[in-house]
Design a protein around this nucleic acid. Structure first.
Lengths: 236, 236
DNA sequence: GCGACACATATTGCATGCAATCAGCGGCGG
DNA sequence: CCGCCGCTGATTGCATGCAATATGTGTCGC
C-alpha cells in the first residue's frame, strides 16, 4: 500500500516545480502573448498586484519579466508609475515597417542563395493554408499564417541573428499591421503578390524577390496606414 | 548669510537620490560598459555578490539588470548558475556581421534620400578624426571613431528603429570586431574605403553607397575572421 | 461653485530573509 | 588507485517587508 507523503504536497501547478530559474521567462512569455493577442491593448497599465495573482508568482519574477519586455520594446516602465503596453504612433509604425521591409529584402537574397528546397516547400504549404483561410473568411488564421510565411522566408536565410531581430521587431508592430488586413480588397491582391514571391523564392531569383517583397510591404502598409489614420474603414 | 538646511542631508551619493526607479537601468549601463570595454571578457561569470558590492546596490536591481542585458544578447543566464558574458563562436559573429552589413545597406539608400548635409558634415568630421587617430597610431581611438562613423551613417537614415537595432546588434560583436583592426595593413585600405563611402554619401549615390558598404564590411570581416581563427597574427 | 491643499490609501522600488540548488571535498567501497 | 556518495559552504531564486512615491478623496478658502 502506498502512502502519501506526510507533508501535504502543496503542488500549486504541475509545471510550477520545474519553473525555478525560469519563472521570469515564463511570466514574460505569458504577458507577451496577451500583448500580441490584443488582450492587453496599447496604453494599458499593468498592475503588479493583478498580474501576480493571475499568474501565480510573486512580484520579484514579475518585475524581472517587465524588464525583459521593456528591452523587447513591448512595455514602457515609468519610474514609480509601473509598466504599460507601448503605444506606437503612426510614425513609429512607419519606421518599424521600413525596418522590416529592409530586413526582408536582406533576407531575400540570402534565402535564394542558401534556402533549402524543403524550406521552400514548407513556405508553399503555408501559402496553401493561407489561401484556405482566405476562402474560409478566417481573418485571424489568415493573418497568423501570413506572418508565419514572412518569418519562414526570413528563416530561409539561415541567419539566426537576422531571424531573431525580424521576429522581435515584427512582434512590436503586429497589432498595428493587423488593422490593415481588415480590408477585403487587399486580400486578393496580397495573395497574388504572395504567389509571385513564392515563385521567385523557388526559382532563387534574389533581386526579383527583393523587389517583390519591397513592393508587397509598401502596398500592405499603404492600406494599413490609411486604416490607422481612419481614412479607410475596415469592412471585415 | 546663507544657512545649510536644518536636517543634515544624508546624501549617500550625488546621483543616488535620483536613482530610485532607475537603478536597474543604471546598473545595466555600468555592466554593459564593462562588457563592451572588455573589462568583463566573454565567458566571464558574474557573481551577484561582487557586483552588488562594487556597484552599491542590492541584488534585486542587479538581477533586473541581468535580465535586461540578457535580452540585449550580452549576457546568458543559466538557471541556478547565474549570469555570464555571452561567448560568440566565429559562426555567430559571421551571422551578426552579415546582419550588420544588411542593416547598413538598407540604411545606405535611406541616408542618401533623407540625410541632411549637416549630418554628412558631421560624418566627414568624424572621418577626419579617424584619420588623425590612424596617424597617431591610436588604435582604440581609431576603432571607436570608426564605429561612430558607421553608427552615424545609419542614423542618417532617420529611422530610430533601424538605428536602435543597429546599435544593439553592433554592440554584441564589438569586441570581436576589434580584433580585426589590430592588423596594420588593413588600416590604410579601410581609410581609403571610408573616403569613397563618404563621397558616395555626400553625393547621395544610394546604390553605390550600398555596394561600397557591403564591400567594406566584407573586407574588414575577412581580415577579422582570420585573426579570430588564429590564421593571422595581429601586429599592433 | 471651483480650485488647492492635506490626509489616507494604494502602488511601486528596493532590501532582506529563507529555501533550493550547486560546487568543492573528504570518506568509503570497489 | 579510482570512482561514487554524502556532506558543507556558497550561491542563486524567490517571497516578503519596509520606505518612498503616486493616487484618490474630503475639506477649506476664495
Amino acid at each position: 500500500m502506498q502512502y502519501a507523503p506526510d507533508t501535504a504536497t502543496p503542488e500549486p501547478a504541475p509545471e510550477a516545480r520545474s519553473l525555478r530559474g525560469r519563472s521570469a521567462a515564463f511570466v514574460a512569455e505569458r504577458i507577451r502573448e496577451r500583448i500580441l493577442s490584443g488582450q492587453l491593448p496599447p496604453g494599458e497599465r499593468l498592475s503588479e498586484r493583478s498580474l501576480t495573482e493571475g499568474l501565480g508568482v510573486t512580484r520579484t519574477p514579475l518585475r524581472e519579466a517587465f524588464k525583459i519586455l521593456e528591452a523587447e520594446g513591448l512595455l514602457a516602465i515609468v519610474p514609480n508609475r509601473g509598466a504599460q503596453v507601448v503605444e506606437l504612433s503612426p510614425a513609429d509604425v512607419d519606421m518599424a515597417m521600413e525596418l522590416l521591409a529592409g530586413l526582408e529584402s536582406v533576407a531575400a537574397e540570402l534565402a535564394c542563395a542558401r534556402g533549402t528546397d524543403e524550406q521552400f516547400a514548407k513556405v508553399a504549404g503555408l501559402h496553401a493554408r493561407m489561401v484556405a483561410c482566405q476562402r474560409a473568411g478566417d481573418l485571424v488564421g489568415y493573418f497568423r499564417v501570413n506572418q508565419d510565411i514572412h518569418q519562414h522566408i526570413v528563416d530561409c536565410a539561415h541567419n539566426p541573428a537576422l531571424s531573431r531581430v525580424y521576429r522581435t521587431e515584427s512582434a512590436r508592430v503586429r497589432l498595428y499591421r493587423f488593422a490593415g488586413n481588415r480590408v477585403s480588397a487587399r486580400w486578393s491582391r496580397a495573395v497574388s503578390e504572395h504567389e509571385q514571391i513564392l515563385l521567385a523564392l523557388q526559382q532563387r531569383q534574389g533581386p526579383l524577390l527583393r523587389e517583390l517583397l519591397r513592393a508587397h510591404h509598401l502596398n500592405g502598409w499603404r492600406v494599413t496606414r490609411k486604416v490607422l489614420e481612419n481614412e479607410l474603414q475596415p469592412d471585415l
